[in-house]
Design a protein around this nucleic acid. Structure first.
Lengths: 337, 337
DNA sequence: CTGTTAGCGCTTTCAT
DNA sequence: ATGAAAGCGCTAACAG
């Protein structure tokens, strides 16, 4: 049997309440009792039962982190993991635990996010990569539980969001290419069901229409994986009229694409220029350093935690935030003549 | 106020006990009541308070996952994240939650792993990348809580472990290089405080001594990051007598190294051959596809969960397991003449 | 300051 | 098959 406060109360001839107060450093208890109790607790190897404490205090000291993964196995390729470590450390220092969930579309019915939150009594929620239309999140949006959506433009009751400026990112890419004299610019998009992919793609469409004709053949579908980028190479090859530059919605797809093109004898940037998106460190280490849009994941993670706890503490809803991104110039884009 | 079983009992003119039984599909309750209760519950938007249920049933339905991170920011570079998604999905399907913790050496004093486990009442524990000598894990080892150590050779009370065969991995690398005629083989090791790094390094030392003289200058210290590999390049340059091949304890370090060497005008594999370790997908996409040791992370993750739940269910301690690894031949090693 | 009492929301005997 | 009663381990309100 685990030792409880009753045990240590009995041992010391005190009441359970006194022990509880001592252990929790309450004001209305003498120093000597505090000392005695704490010593005894250590001696008896007492461990607080948080479950019980949480039941009465109605505080769970837990925040829920939900990661939406379209592609089960490839969650590691999402940016989610770049955030989670920060969450873990920050949240731990604030005295909270992190309950982590991975959600996919099949989960809609039985595991609504709200259900999981209410059952576990989480005090705040971070949701990465969701999209408005998923049934399983509708209810959290309405419910008054502090929630921050990451990379999804969703607001609601005590709900806000934070994203990178995807419009600006694509603008910077395209402007840079234009400057370098590129006109025929292709695009690799991700799954359009996410806000992020949609925004990047639509921005491309808007901009491209301004100085050339939008061409369906210049749009390729990927899923952010190395492999999906690699496969695009084959499709590029088959094009009669090739683009002079390709903008990828993600660095990994860009890297896969570069590999694919290389194997087909296409030189980068001499034959085709490439721009990625993400600013992953690895992009600087591959054969041709990748020109890309850098996102400050660390900052994103920290601001997310800031926002969440401000909402938890003050019960106010915050304005959504948008983080700026930066063009990183590698060697994967050439100047057209 | 949240709706409780009492509320729905009152609404239906039943007892709380009956409602509880109905909701939990117990045998000793009629079908009609079950149906009525469930419907009413849905109608009233009832959500079970797991905290309360856990207090009485003494089951938390939670497993704790602890990731040891030497280098705070670089957890994403560890293999831990390759496992976590599998844990999440498997564990969810078994009706459990995952409480995730990141532990560093500073945490030893206040947050012993056992303390966190007992407070949260976790029913099983997965610990990634720990090492025997850390104070903060000593107590879990002795305590009877089902525990699986990943990539650390630790056993104990209801405690087992699973690792890749690091000896075999390094043997395969070195044998391959020997076969290709390499004699002067250097090594990049990771932090020797982890079992994994120690084993890989010691195996290198053993083997190398068999056919050449162990040379301290041929051993470089890294930390599994791209950057640390990159920095090794400079040190290689400064060597009067250069190795013909370098074995890296990790793929990212190998990739960083290759980049560094390339910038210094050293060609791979013509001038120096490289072998990595991990089998990360990215290694096949970089300039020169990396020859490496492939570890089946998916299998590792699944077996870890299997072992843990077998221990949870049967309260028996399992034999440690070792997973075989495989040499993947890329283009980063050349045949010596 | 310390103890008594009550109860968080649920499950679980044990009667009925 | 249903309900009454007890209690999981802790904290909070109130008395003393």
């Amino acid at each position: 049997m685990r030792v409880t406060i009753k045990d240590i109360a009995k041992e010391l001839g005190l009441s359970a309440a006194a022990v509880s107060k001592a252990l929790n450093d309450k004001e209305d208890i003498s120093q000597e009792i505090k000392a005695k109790v704490k010593e005894k607790a250590k001696e008896m190897n007492y461990q607080k039962n948080e479950t019980a404490a949480r039941l009465v205090s109605k505080k769970s000291n837990t925040i829920g982190v939900f990661v939406f993964a379209r592609d089960k196995i490839k969650m590691e390729e999402s940016s989610a993991f770049k955030y989670i470590e920060v969450y873990l450390n920050r949240v731990k220092n604030l005295g909270y635990d992190v309950l982590l969930f991975s959600i996919d579309d099949d989960d809609n019915i039985n595991n609504s996010v709200l259900k999981l939150c209410l059952e576990r009594n989480v005090e705040g929620v971070i949701i990465i990569g969701a999209n408005k239309n998923q049934k399983c999140i509708q209810d959290v949006i309405d419910y008054s539980i502090p929630t921050v959506f990451v990379e999804a433009n969703i607001t609601g009751n005590l709900t806000t969001n934070i994203s990178f400026n995807d419009v600006s990112g694509i603008e910077k890419s395209i402007a840079y290419l234009e400057n370098k004299g590129h006109k025929r610019i292709a695009f690799i998009r991700g799954d359009l069901r996410t806000d992020l992919s949609r925004t990047r793609f639509l921005t491309y469409v808007n901009l491209i229409s301004q100085f050339s004709e939008y061409n369906d053949n210049f749009v390729f579908q990927g899923d952010f994986s190395l492999e999906s980028g690699y496969e695009v190479a084959q499709k590029v090859i088959e094009l009669k009229e090739k683009p002079t530059a390709i903008v990828s919605s993600g660095d990994l797809m860009a890297i896969g694409l570069m590999r694919g093109l290389k194997e087909k004898g296409i030189k980068i940037p001499e034959d085709i220029s490439i721009i990625g998106y993400d600013g992953f460190e690895i992009g600087r280490y591959i054969g041709v350093p990748l020109t890309t849009i850098k996102q400050d994941f660390l900052k994103m993670a920290n601001e997310t935690v800031d926002m969440l706890f401000e909402m938890i503490e003050n019960k106010i809803v915050l304005e959504p935030r948008i983080l700026e991104v930066e063009l990183i110039i590698g060697e994967s884009v050439r100047q057209m003549v």
